[in-house]
Every structure is written in structure tokens, then in C-alpha cells.
Lab assay of single mutants.
Amino acid sequence: SSGGSSILDRAVIEHNLLSASKLYNNITFEELGALLEIPAAKAEKIASQMITEGRMNGFIDQIDGIVHFETR
């Protein structure tokens, strides 16, 4: 797709992000992006959206560029 990722790509990214949230206590956007094979800024945006929508527990430290995952 030309304008970003398809629905399937997005679903795969979100699935992998949720998997990462179970493996890590926290991770930088750079590391997360590398893990998900997407730019760091996109990793931040998707993580932020999932947390806001209540689909993933955690919070974002924008100063240090880190996602902190919280286990249920």
C-alpha cells in the first residue's frame, strides 16, 4: 500500500507490540521500532494509541523516549 501500512500489517504490528509488552518491562522507541521493523516514531504512535484505547497497559515517557509496560 502506498499511504502507510495495510490493515494486516497494522494487525501484525499490534500483535508483536503486545508480545513485546509481555517480554519487556520497558523499551526505547528505537529498540521497539527495530523489533517491529518500523520507524521509531511510528512505534511510538501505535504504542500510544493502543495504551490510550486501553488495549495495552503502560505509559510513555516522551522525555526519555521509552515505553513502560505495566503487567495486568
Rank of each mutant, 00 (worst) to 15 (best):
S1R: 02
S2L: 13
S2Q: 11
S2W: 06
S2A: 11
S2E: 13
S2G: 12
G3D: 12
G3R: 03
G3W: 07
G3A: 11
G4R: 02
G4S: 11
S5T: 11
S5P: 14
S5V: 12
S5E: 14
S6R: 03
S6T: 11
S6E: 11
S6G: 11
S6M: 09
S6N: 12
S6Q: 10
I7D: 14
I7Y: 13
L8Q: 10
L8S: 14
L8M: 09
D9M: 06
D9G: 05
D9L: 07
D9T: 06
D9W: 06
R10E: 13
R10W: 15
R10D: 15
R10A: 10
R10H: 12
R10Y: 14
R10T: 13
A11G: 09
A11D: 13
A11H: 14
A11K: 09
V12T: 14
V12H: 10
V12L: 09
V12S: 10
V12D: 09
V12I: 13
V12C: 07
I13Y: 06
I13K: 03
I13W: 06
I13P: 01
I13T: 05
I13D: 03
I13V: 08
E14R: 03
E14K: 03
E14N: 03
E14H: 04
H15V: 10
H15I: 12
H15Q: 14
H15R: 14
N16R: 15
N16Y: 12
N16T: 09
N16W: 11
N16M: 12
L17N: 02
L17G: 01
L17F: 05
L18V: 07
L18E: 04
S19D: 09
S19C: 07
S19I: 14
S19V: 15
S19K: 15
A20K: 05
A20W: 12
A20T: 08
A20R: 03
S21Y: 04
S21R: 03
S21F: 05
S21W: 04
S21C: 04
S21I: 08
K22P: 02
K22S: 07
K22G: 06
K22H: 09
K22E: 08
K22A: 07
L23A: 08
L23H: 11
L23I: 13
L23C: 07
L23E: 07
Y24P: 01
Y24F: 11
Y24N: 04
N25D: 11
N25Y: 10
N25Q: 14
N25W: 08
N25R: 11
N25G: 09
N25L: 12
N26R: 13
N26G: 05
N26A: 13
N26M: 15
N26L: 13
N26W: 15
N26S: 15
N26C: 09
N26I: 08
N26K: 14
N26D: 06
I27V: 07
I27D: 00
I27G: 00
I27Y: 04
I27K: 04
T28M: 03
T28L: 03
T28V: 01
F29C: 02
F29P: 01
F29D: 00
F29T: 03
E30N: 08
E30Q: 11
E30I: 12
E30D: 09
E31Q: 09
E31C: 07
E31D: 12
E31V: 07
L32I: 03
L32Q: 00
L32R: 00
L32M: 03
L32H: 00
G33H: 02
G33L: 02
G33E: 04
G33S: 08
A34H: 12
A34E: 09
L35W: 08
L35Q: 03
L35V: 06
L36C: 04
L36R: 00
L36N: 01
L36P: 00
L36M: 05
L36H: 01
L36Q: 00
E37V: 07
E37R: 15
E37A: 14
E37I: 05
E37N: 15
E37G: 15
E37L: 11
I38P: 00
I38E: 01
P39R: 03
P39A: 06
P39H: 06
P39C: 04
P39N: 09
P39K: 05
A40G: 07
A40F: 05
A40N: 04
A40T: 08
A41N: 10
K42F: 15
K42T: 15
K42C: 06
K42L: 15
K42R: 14
A43P: 00
A43K: 00
A43G: 02
A43T: 03
E44M: 14
E44A: 14
E44N: 07
E44K: 10
K45N: 10
K45A: 14
K45W: 14
K45Y: 14
K45V: 09
K45G: 08
I46L: 09
I46V: 08
I46Q: 01
I46D: 01
I46H: 04
A47G: 02
A47V: 12
A47M: 07
S48Q: 14
S48W: 13
S48A: 13
S48K: 10
S48T: 11
S48Y: 12
S48I: 13
S48V: 09
Q49C: 05
Q49P: 00
Q49M: 09
Q49G: 07
Q49R: 06
M50Q: 01
M50I: 03
M50A: 03
I51N: 01
I51E: 00
T52V: 09
T52W: 10
E53S: 08
E53L: 04
E53R: 03
E53F: 04
E53Y: 04
E53C: 06
E53D: 10
G54S: 04
G54R: 05
G54V: 01
G54E: 05
G54W: 03
R55C: 05
R55M: 07
R55K: 10
R55S: 06
R55A: 05
R55V: 08
R55D: 03
R55Q: 07
M56P: 02
M56Q: 01
M56Y: 03
M56F: 11
M56G: 01
M56L: 15
N57S: 08
N57C: 10
N57L: 09
N57T: 08
G58K: 00
G58C: 03
G58L: 03
G58R: 01
G58Y: 02
F59E: 08
F59C: 09
F59Q: 06
F59K: 08
I60Q: 01
I60E: 00
I60T: 02
I60V: 09
D61L: 05
D61Q: 05
D61W: 04
D61A: 05
D61I: 05
Q62G: 07
Q62R: 13
Q62L: 14
Q62T: 14
Q62S: 14
Q62V: 14
Q62A: 12
I63E: 10
I63N: 09
I63M: 08
I63G: 08
I63A: 11
I63W: 07
D64H: 15
D64G: 15
D64M: 15
D64C: 09
G65M: 08
G65P: 04
G65L: 05
G65T: 03
G65H: 09
G65E: 06
I66D: 02
I66P: 01
I66R: 15
I66F: 07
I66Q: 06
I66L: 09
V67I: 15
V67G: 01
V67S: 02
H68A: 04
H68Q: 04
H68P: 00
H68Y: 15
H68R: 07
H68E: 04
F69S: 01
F69E: 02
F69H: 01
F69D: 00
F69P: 01
E70M: 10
E70H: 12
E70N: 13
E70C: 12
E70Q: 11
T71G: 11
T71L: 09
T71E: 11
T71F: 09
T71C: 12
T71K: 14
T71W: 11
R72F: 13
R72K: 14
R72Q: 13
R72M: 12
R72L: 13
R72N: 13
R72Y: 13
